[in-house]
Amino acid sequence: MLSYILRRLGLAMVITVLAVTLLFLIIHMIPGDPVSTMLGPRASPELRAALEERMGLNRPLFVQIGLFFFNMLNGDLGTDVFSNRQVTDIVLGQLPYTLTLILSSITWSATLGITLGCYSAANRNSLADRLTGILSVSMIAVPAFVVSLYSLLIFAVNLKWFPAIGAGEPGNFSDQLWHLVLPSLAIGLSWVGYIARLVRASMLEIMGEGHVRTARSFGLPERWITYSYALRLAILPTVTVIGVGMGFLLSAAVFTEIVFSRPGLGKLVIDSITTRNYPVVMGAVLFSTLIFVASTTLADIVNAVLDPRVRSSK
């Protein structure tokens, strides 16, 4: 088990390094010169040279990448070009908002999705199963930003049940929770459908396998077989999908944070890209990458915990 986890962590590091390098190159390929964006077209050459020096843009690209990694290991992601604040501080200040949003979304949607999926599989071809199926597909079909806009319009503007913008008063937990409802609904909704379909399909497959028949032939209660014996197996693909799905959740969070004017990584990335604030973009994207790599690695480890066959595989 330990060697499995170590191998996964090693792989995660390799992926992170590759991803960061790639991101660095992509950001530098974005058209538009940061110096002229920031200083305007009529800046003096001295001023331009000074800014280039400060941002490190006058050095060769590979040196820039090397320096970035070196500083990253020391926890230094550079300084914001405008405010001179530490990028690490800026990103860490925004990170909790995005993490809360993503984790709350996936938690409620996975709970509901797994429950619906199990119910559908247990009552296959019933009216409830068909309704769940139709609902699931409609949920999958609607993009997060559409749900964002309409839920904003219906529940915040017309019905005034929930606040429309922001993330709530810092320190006021219930206010923050109140502000979380609509964005979390927007991001999680399609996942409910997706996970319900996935769990239903794998449950049906597992329930037809020989070991379920064995459990039945020993008179184990059906509920026990479904939730303790079969779900343990049926959940495995779902865990992997959720792990990989963190990437999609992050991109959904970008839209949602903008629609609800919520602070967070997504809003930070968009704001800093439009101003060509390279250090902040890199910092924000780096943390998004880390979230993604961490979630896929975690999914692998959870899989190994649940499935002894994965643990022992080389």
């Binding site: 396998e209 020989g210 070991h211 028949r213 064995t214 459990a215 039945r216 032939s217 020993f218 008179g219 184990l220 209660p221 014996y229 343990r232 197996l233 649940l306 499935d307 002894p308 066959r309």
Partner: peptide, 24 residues
């Protein structure tokens, strides 16, 4: 019927590779 299964009547199935739950 369930009360009889495994107690009064029990079964051994054909394929031993499929008989047991693989994750328990």
């Amino acid at each position: 019927m369930r009360a009889l299964r495994g107690i009064d009547i029990s079964m051994v199935f054909q394929d031993p590779m499929q008989t047991h739950n693989p994750v328990l």
